[in-house]
Design a protein around this nucleic acid. Structure first.
Lengths: 353, 353
DNA sequence: GTTAGCACTCGCCAAGCCGGAGTGCCAGAA
DNA sequence: TTCTGGCACTCCGGCTTGGCGAGTGCTAAC
């Protein structure tokens, strides 16, 4: 794609483009030249505005849905707006306070926060919101427990150093005695606390595992696989909320569209591609319509940001809405919410406490 | 409501009602008298069928959407069909095998099974499906662990006797030493293993808690509240899938409807009312349209069943679709799936193993 | 470079019309 | 009685037509 910043247009044309975007975003109807001179203080006549609009259309920034209709922005037009025209301001203080308040109501639980974040975000921007649970870059074993559930079933409960808890049921051929299991768990906990998955594997190579009993190999294998899974960013839960908001938008009145979007949300592998494509990006990212790689999402825009603790844990938070989206508001809200979430995690999980 | 079984109609009228229901369910268009005599072997003329249809309409079992249209079943008509006319047969063996196969592919985890059940169910009946995670009637403490995450944060990990795992983060004023915590956990585990929430409270009353250190009261309080929460049936996760299927149905082409349904699914407190209203009911329940208590769900039918282990753990599994639903197929599929799920749980969680 | 004026193009109803579908009823047959 | 063929009647849905209003592009003049 050619550089959007290089497009040469006059100041007035820039202003007109801005007006068209904002007006269209709020009314969802094509914007006419007359409408512009009436509602905004441009000191020229509608005919002049029309000339400028013709130029903007030539540049591919706006289009007419049909003759005798006003203009609407193209994806390219939105992109120009987002890159050069809008000024995302900080969220008003009272809104900040209202949001913050909701988070202090809730218990200390990262999953819960993320779920709430999706919910708050969707309500604040009147759009759908998605959020992925934070994943650690590197998880160290804090503690694990081996419990005998029945004769042939064990439960392995693993706690990561950041407080994440996972469990896995294991089947064994031979009856396992709880005393034996506890003894094994005690020994291994002492040896492995603070170790990462690869470190555990290395330890396993170096030690004489056989002496630890018949269950040791399976337990070690499960531990490393569970730790590994905790680190994989795409394996975490994806929360989404506010689908109904985006279906209110007139662009989704077209029969097929809605289902497309719902399927998108339900199957969820779009999010994993989004997650991976966000790897390494900083700040709030805006993906407009066709720019998105996923085909289904072509009629949607995504405003998304990373949150988390530098180098330790990270997750994604964003809004999904129609291309005709109030980008400025979305960007500032997503920005604020991701900082807030990072902040909460910071306080909860910083090693100092 | 007057008893649906008491309605007096002739055999032929019964047959005609059955035809109308089945035909309308599969075509979604009003059924005409001519259509009935052409496609089904009724040995009378269309005029006779019309007379019978007039009678069925008088009884409130069918209606005409407008003059010069065929007939469609009313909620009452569907109810009569479900109660007296349909014969839900067992699922074909090859379908049973296909479904069973999918469950054997997946690891031993109740939550995972339930999620899969919702997914399989929705695909099998081409409708939306919901499932709630199984909840124990009575949870006994299997084990808990106290872990110091940072100076002022503790993590309490609780394992129930059926293998459910939950965690809660606790804040403390004073730095907690891991050794001290482990000692406390050891003592309490010994004293409390196998106890239910009320039993723990009773124990707390009887014992001298003060000697166990400053953290003991908080830990005990948290343990009972966590156990209590595990027992509350409406606090479990609700999984739903296949929304897009039901939105394909022509009855949801009406603009507002879709959002209504989606909000219904998103907010989820409809499910908790459903769960409580299912308390004590056995077998597959069918709720048709207006019969449902929730207002939003009036345009939908629900076919739902309980699964679980008698007196030990239980959850809900069902399909949600338009009132124009293939009830026979839904009932047999839901019936089969709930038995399958019970079966899996039985094997995984029976105390014998 | 800007503007007034004007012809031109469409989309969007609303009205009117027509054909088809399906019924209810009736009189006569079994 | 119960059924049936025939027929008038109703109403929906689709199609066409015409008029209105909105908005533009162009041109000629400022």
């Amino acid at each position: 794609m050619d550089q959007i910043a290089d497009i040469k247009i006059t100041d007035r044309q820039r202003a007109i483009l801005g007006i068209i975007v904002e007006e269209y975003v709020s009314t969802a109807r094509p914007v006419a030249s007359e409408q512009i001179v009436n509602n905004y203080r441009v000191n020229v006549s509608s005919a002049t505005v029309r000339n400028d609009m013709a130029e903007l259309e030539r540049l591919g920034l706006i289009v007419q849905p049909h003759t005798s209709a006003g203009r609407i922005p193209t994806d390219r037009g939105y992109r120009y707006f987002v890159t050069n025209l809008m000024h995302p301001s900080a969220l008003p203080l009272d809104e900040q306070r209202k949001i913050r308040h909701q988070f202090h109501q809730v218990e200390l639980d990262a999953e819960e926060w993320v779920r709430l974040a999706a919910s708050v975000l969707s309500r604040t921007v009147h759009s759908a919101a998605v959020a992925t649970a934070p994943r650690s870059i590197e998880v160290r074993l804090k503690h694990f427990e081996l419990l005998s559930i029945s004769d042939t079933r064990l439960l392995l409960v693993l706690v990561g150093d950041e407080g994440s808890v996972t469990q896995q049921m294991l089947t064994v051929d031979e009856a396992a005695d709880q005393g034996e299991l506890s003894a094994l768990a005690l020994k291994l906990n002492n040896a492995l606390e603070g170790k990462t998955a690869p470190e555990i594997q290395a330890w396993e190579q170096a030690e004489d595992i056989a002496q630890l009993g018949e269950f040791a190999p399976m337990v070690l294998k499960t531990l490393t696989s569970m730790l590994g899974k905790l680190e994989r960013p795409e394996s975490g839960n994806v929360y989404h909320e506010g689908l109904s908001h985006i279906l209110e938008q007139p662009e989704f009145r077209v029969p097929g569209r809605m289902q497309q979007i719902i399927e998108l949300f339900e199957q969820g592998d779009v999010w994993s591609t989004l997650i991976t494509s966000m790897a390494g990006r900083e700040g709030v990212q805006v993906i407009i319509g066709e720019e998105g790689t996923a085909e289904g999402i072509a009629s949607c825009s995504v405003v998304i940001a990373r949150y988390g603790l530098e180098d330790r844990m990270t997750g994604l938070l964003g809004v999904v809405g129609p291309v005709r989206m109030p980008y400025s508001r979305s960007v500032s809200t997503v920005g604020y919410m991701s900082e807030l979430l990072s902040d909460l995690l910071q306080r909860a999980y910083s090693r100092e406490g």
